[in-house]
Design a protein around this nucleic acid. Structure first.
Length: 427
RNA sequence: GGAGGGAUGGCAGAGUGGACGAUUGCGGCGGUCUUGAAAACCGCUGAGGCCGCAAGGUCUCCGGGGGUUCGAAUCCCUCUCCCUCCGCCA
């Protein structure tokens, strides 16, 4: 959520940003509602001040034994009370409407973000590693997985329909090995504290993380209980410190959580229908930072390199891509994706997305900090980044480490997590 | 699922219609004393909105929402959460 005062004072900047973002939001309606709200507030507060003074006086008159005067004053106060009631009623209409509209305004992009209408204007910041040269035709992971008997698409569909799959044997183990290794590197080498959070949250938590109301259509929920299934650990991690005032000396706080992620993927119908790339249920290790406004952008660089480090240690060629304004998304002020080279699918596949969300979520979730013990609370800045989704990384690992005989060599760093297994050969 | 009891500031805990944004204690911050510290003593110590260049003024907030009243932390309705006991259960 943007600061209402900022919108009021800089409506043109906000509108410019919306154009760059290729987004839309009812800025003029918001400004009008804000005007209305403040006019109503002013009037009602003046009346309240009058009533407070009058009520006090009534008490005094009663005590001094002047019931007639008190009675007359009561009459006047009652009229003021009626008027206050009317104004309150009007405010009860205006305020939720204003808030609802504010919840649909995206974050402002950082000035350094390249401007462009869509992903074609994203900028490759750096590339690491050279794509492996094959002396045979590398297969996509869906062929490798079926042949080796480690990915079972048919049975996944039998149970749950399209975009579900089953991992079996070494496939399931590889998935678990990646997960555990990601968590271990994140906590041991990169300084994150591991969190095991709820995977279902209340609507309010979704609003705090800026997933509601905008992304309602992409989420699963239980209508009976007000439980929303998380599409990423970013949601519970944001809400971990909701409605708290943190000490400035605690920052940055670096958290990491491994959770399942549930997404309807309605808007992606027809895209990535083969393989395990885009599915309704996947897992992800997510990094999350609470920082001061001063260090957020430095932390973003560290966040990306933490995620990148995982891909590199697996010796998988990757590149870091900076999103242009048109591809930034709703909450990020600046965002980098990491893409891994998948020779079988023959594409750069997104395996991480790292964003500085600035105070956008902090405002919604009311997460603040104090620079010194008596200083005014300020909103923290929050950042999030994947590290990493094991399912997506399985694609890169399987396709890069495949051999001509159809087996897959297990990357060195994962062998201790797979009982020393050196190759997946389908036996 | 059933019965009962609760929710007040960073924490503990008073307050049952007007002088209460709230007694007090602890914690925290500042000071006196001290070579320094502790102890003792003194003072300060919630958040947000609106008006204002500012100084300042004003309003709101005692779990959330609604109501009664000139006036609500206090009375009424409702929701949520927590605790105790019983039942059920991986």
């Amino acid at each position: 959520m943007l600061d209402m005062a900022f919108i009021r004072e800089n409506p043109d900047l906000v509108k410019e940003a919306l154009i760059k973002l290729n987004a839309d939001a009812p800025v003029d309606e918001i400004l009008e509602l804000d005007r209305k709200r403040r006019a109503l507030l002013r009037e009602t507060e003046e009346l309240r001040a009058e009533r407070n003074a009058g009520s006090k006086q009534i008490g005094n008159l009663m005590r001094e034994g002047q019931p007639d005067e008190a009675e007359a004053l009561k009459q006047r106060m009652s009229e003021i009370g009626d008027r206050i009631g009317e104004l309150d009623e009007a405010l009860r209409q205006v305020e939720p409407e204003l808030r609802e509209k504010l919840l649909w305004v995206p974050n402002m992009p950082h000035p350094s973000v390249p401007v462009g209408p869509d992903e074609s204007h994203n900028v490759v910041v750096r590339q690491w590693g050279e794509p492996r040269q094959f002396d045979f035709e590398p297969l996509p992971h869906w062929d490798l997985g079926e042949t080796l008997g480690i990915i079972d698409f048919e049975r996944g569909v039998k149970m749950s329909g399209t975009r579900f799959y089953v991992l079996k044997g070494a496939g399931a183990t590889l998935h678990r090995a990646l997960t555990n290794w990601f968590i271990d590197v994140g906590t041991r080498d990169h300084g994150y504290t591991e969190i095991y959070p709820p995977f279902m949250v209340h609507a309010e938590a979704m609003v705090g993380a800026a997933h509601l109301p905008k992304f309602r259509d992409n989420m699963y929920y239980d209508a009976e209980e007000d439980f929303w299934f998380i599409g990423t650990a970013e949601v519970p991690l944001t809400n971990f410190h909701r409605d708290e005032i943190l000490g400035g000396d605690q920052l940055p706080i670096k958290l990491l959580a491994h959770t399942p992620c549930f997404r309807r993927e309605k808007m992606s119908a027809g895209r990535d229908v083969r393989g395990i790339k885009r599915v309704h249920q996947f897992e992800k290790v997510e990094m999350y930072l609470f920082t001061t406004p001063d260090t957020g952008y430095d932390e973003l660089e560290t966040l990306v390199s933490d995620a990148e480090d995982l891909v590199r240690r697996l010796d998988i060629p990757c590149r870091v891509v900076e999103m242009c304004t048109g591809d930034l998304g709703f909450a990020a002020a600046k965002k980098y994706d990491i893409e891994a080279w998948c020779p079988g699918s023959n594409e750069w596949t997104e395996v991480s997305s790292c964003s500085n969300v600035t105070d956008f979520q902090a405002r919604r979730a009311n997460i603040r900090f104090r620079r010194q013990s008596k200083a005014r609370p300020e909103f923290v800045h929050t950042l999030n980044g994947s590290a990493l989704p094991p399912g997506r990384m399985m694609i890169a690992v399987m396709e890069k480490y495949q051999q001509e005989d159809g087996t897959i060599t297990v990357p060195e760093v994962l062998r201790p997590y797979m009982g020393g297994l050196e190759a997946i050969d389908g036996r």
